[in-house]
Design a binder for these strands. Structure first.
Length: 160
DNA sequence: GCCAACGTTGGC
DNA sequence: GCCAACGTTGGC
């Protein structure tokens, strides 16, 4: 069976790259992922046209801040080959690249962040990978049901 | 800054 | 292959 996952969540620390940076850049390559499970998603499973929830971690508050779309599938992470990059990895070679990236394009920034606290309190999101205790993966699959629900929550009129 | 919950490394 | 030591992530 082909892998049919279509929706993903990608974490970033807004201090290093935020949704605002993505909105400004329009397109970026999602670099610096140095975890094998996340690498496998980037290399094998994430397809052109897939949609991505952008998540701010180590933020105030942490939470989902917007949506992006995959426009180019996995290819070797150029920062792994760059000795000047903080993501440089001498064990990754051009011939046998160890780390991968995808290109994503900005789609939208939510009017209000969906904080981790909001997400945890939402019974519709029970079972969401992101909310699993100890979950540290920076690239995660999201079910269609959860993805659509998050979009719905984000487009509601702001709480006051 | 603390620390739980991971993932990775390397000795054996 | 086991597992202790170490490093990292990320909430709080």
């Amino acid at each position: 069976m082909k892998n049919q996952k279509k929706y993903w969540l990608m974490k970033t620390e807004p201090g290093s790259y935020s949704i605002d940076d993505l909105q400004k850049d329009k397109i970026t390559f999602w670099s610096g992922v140095r975890n094998y499970q996340a690498r496998n998603f980037l290399r094998d499973d994430i397809k052109k046209g897939n949609e991505v929830l952008v998540y701010h971690s180590n933020a105030e508050p942490s939470g989902i801040v917007g949506v992006a779309k995959v426009i180019k599938e996995g290819y070797p992470d150029p920062t792994a080959f760059d000795p000047k990059s903080q993501y440089f990895d001498e064990t990754s070679s051009m011939k046998d690249p160890r780390w991968f990236v995808v290109d994503i394009q900005f789609v939208k920034k939510f009017d209000q962040i969906l904080s981790l606290q909001d997400l945890k309190m939402d019974p519709m999101l029970d079972g969401m990978e992101l909310l699993r205790k100890g979950q540290r993966l920076s690239v995660l699959p999201v079910s269609e049901k959860h993805f659509l629900h998050v979009l719905g929550q984000a487009s509601r009129s702001p709480k006051r």
